[in-house]
Amino acid sequence: MNKSVAIIVLFLLFAVQLFVPAQMIYEQEDTLYSGTAYKFKTQPIDPSDPFRGKYIVLNYEMDSFETNDESWNGYFGTLFIYLETDAKGFASVKTISKTQLDSSDDYFITKTHYNYNGKVEFELPFNRFYMNEYKAYDAEISVRKAQADRTKTCYGLVYLKEGTGVLENVYIDDKPILEFVEEYQQEKDSIQ
């Protein structure tokens, strides 16, 4: 490759390399700034990613939609999920569609997981919450213990805008999970 062409291409590549993370940040920030917040009931478990570190996977309660429409049988593909808020303030599915609807309701896009007996199952895409390596495992344990008495509710606060969902934080009874875990760790240390 000619040297001057190579330099131009190199700088173009630098621009692309800067643009990709910048675009990711813009999309997330825009959704957090002007999107609508929804609470999704969940339960966390703790795995690890070699590059991005420890995270908790959120097993959302919302994972299926019942329908009598037979056209869903055997359908595996893109799924648009339109939301509403239930009486307790948590997100619930209003309707699902294979294509984008002309609706003002907030939605997110995912893929069908399994369809059986009029039940379309799916996975919510915003199910990873990255945590400090010393806190992820304790997050799973502390939340499981807290949920055992069925009085505490764990939920993910997700901002939605034009199909993009950003998981802002995870809460246990309105307390951010980080604070909850730190309190649990202090309690654990004091017992030891």
């Binding site: 590059f51 570190g53 995270y55 990255y130």
Partner: peptide
């Protein structure tokens, strides 16, 4: 490049598994 995308993904809890992440990484390098 991988470190930067990792960090952005981590800050905003961007969904996507390791193969999605590797795909972007390979494409822009």
């Amino acid at each position: 490049v991988g470190a930067t995308i990792s960090m952005v993904g981590q800050i905003y809890n961007i969904p996507g598994n390791l193969s999605d992440f590797l795909f972007i990484w390979i494409a822009i390098t």
